[in-house]
Design a protein around this nucleic acid. Sequence first.
DNA 1: TTTACTGTTGGACAAACATCAAACCTAAGC
DNA 2: GCTTAGGTTTGATGTTTGTCCAACAGTAAA
Lengths: 112, 112
Amino acid sequence: MRELPHPSADNITLAQLMHALSDPARLEIVERLAEGDETCTAIGTGIELHKSTLSHHYRVLREAGLTRTTVDGRTRLIRLRRHDLERLFPGLLDAVLRAVRSQSTGRPSAAR
Amino acid sequence: MRELPHPSADNITLAQLMHALSDPARLEIVERLAEGDETCTAIGTGIELHKSTLSHHYRVLREAGLTRTTVDGRTRLIRLRRHDLERLFPGLLDAVLRAVRSQSTGRPSAAR
DNA sequence: TTTACTGTTGGACAAACATCAAACCTAAGC
DNA sequence: GCTTAGGTTTGATGTTTGTCCAACAGTAAA
């Protein structure tokens, strides 16, 4: 159960966070993570992107401080840093999750 | 009191919104707009960027649906689209405004 | 009309980004 | 040891971005 390098909570900036959330693929990933922790392949199924591209997105999310990744054997588990983010920017993650859900289920003209 | 082209509320996407908020300069602009409507030069004073660069940022914010710009004589008044955004993504703008405020006043290591 | 003011537009340029493909790495399983 | 499975890294490619500068456009004032 190793750990990957993550930014400490103090080093998370709002701009980087917003940037991590500015890509439709990453928003979809975050939306899935809201349901619960997931392994990389689990998240990837259904998103039509090359696995290296997905890996890139995982890294962006992680380095922005949005997710935490733990290595377990040859799979990685990704989860949202809910607690850190709530302490840092109260209400922000929840609002984003609500927004991304409403956007994906709301109108038929889904972004993408 | 002309109007500039703005996206209708239905055409505002979360990803574009997040992208508009992913730049430190734009976050600062938004933070100022939270205090109340402002003219372009008023916002610009204190932000060390070329006026054309600022103009570019105003456009990004406007086209993302974050702000509404009205032309009044030779000045333009910019304001946040609070109502539209609240209806579309409840709580999101407020959370962002709280976050940007806490980030700029919070730690000495201000982003930028 | 001429000048000044307020901003926008177009061009240029370097940096960053999203994407894919191929090579790579590490842990399991045989 | 060899192979497979799960991901990452590197390189390449085309696109977008942030920034400045110079030129422009519309409005107001002199």
